[in-house]
Design a protein around this nucleic acid. Structure first.
Length: 268
DNA sequence: ATGGCTTCAGAATGAAGA
């Protein structure tokens, strides 16, 4: 089974590229972020024609996530509240649910897939930064409940907008005050992973210098000045089943690319 | 360089991304 994550920066703008990529890379599951379209306007038909079932959580202009799956998913949920609803909901949950950033479902009995688009956070100390940290806190609560009550195995993938290690950044100088690399962001993501999730890319590639995002500006891709911020995190028994995890930078070389590259994990 | 580029929305020397 192959599972890919890709922040496409608008599915309508990237439609042809995503379709072409799927033709060459017929993954079983494709998790998309930044679809930037309401569900009614999502270009479903060509994906359905390729045999995919679509599960969407989109909004106008910003954010938006989708899962494309060759087999139907069950128990598909969007947002945090379907999982948290039996608990006392935090007072700011409505604010955190406004932005469409999380969708999950069951692939096979006991195997959950979660697709996230973690907030960017703008700049360290900003209001959006606080929102990002709070969002990661709620993500932890959400995953804890799924892992305790529902999942035997879980894979969470997506655009995390955090580089956990300095070697995931082309130039980590000044990273302490840089969005996506500050210590509070790293700690917030580590707290999520402490539930028992591991970065499967590192199982195969211990060294740094591998990136999944390159800024559009200043020729960053051509100079390979990138960041590794798109990840697959797996529970231990699922991680044991992983055979490869690769970043496909080919789509980043095309005209009018997304600024992110797809990341693919293969499980036996 | 509070820059560089790209997207959407809608008419802003815009907001947001990362």
């Amino acid at each position: 089974m192959k599972i890919a994550t890709w922040n496409v920066n608008s599915i309508r703008t990237r439609l042809e590229q995503v379709l072409n990529w799927l033709q060459s890379n017929p993954v079983d599951l494709l998790c998309l972020q930044e679809t930037k379209v309401v569900d009614a306007d999502f270009p479903r038909s060509l994906f359905e024609g390729m045999g995919y079932h679509l599960y969407l959580s989109g909004q106008k202009a910003y954010n938006g996530v989708a899962i494309l799956s060759r087999t139907p998913l069950t128990q598909v949920i969007t947002g945090f509240t379907p999982v948290l609803s039996n608990l006392e909901l935090p007072s700011d949950v409505a604010l955190l649910e406004e932005q469409k950033r999380i969708i999950a479902g069951v692939v096979t009995p006991g195997l959950w897939i979660v697709n996230v688009y973690v907030p960017n956070g703008a700049s360290v100390g900003s209001e959006k930064y606080a929102y990002k940290l709070r969002w990661l806190q709620l993500l932890r609560d959400y995953l804890k409940l799924i892992l305790e009550k529902q999942a035997t195995d879980l894979l969470i993938c997506g655009d995390f907008n955090v580089a956990l290690e300095d070697q995931d950044i082309h130039d980590p100088k000044g990273r302490e005050n840089h969005i996506m690399a500050s210590e509070p962001e790293r700690q917030a993501l580590r707290a999520v992973l402490e539930l028992g999730l591991a970065d499967v890319f590192r199982k195969f590639t211990p060294e740094g210098g591998h990136f999944s995002w390159w800024d559009y500006r200043a020729g960053s891709f051509q100079r390979n000045r990138g960041w590794r911020i798109d990840h697959h995190y797996l529970t231990p028994s699922l991680s044991q089943r992983a055979n490869t995890c690769t970043i496909d930078s080919a789509p980043r070389k095309l005209p009018k690319p997304s600024d992110h590259a797809p990341v693919i994990v293969e499980l036996s």
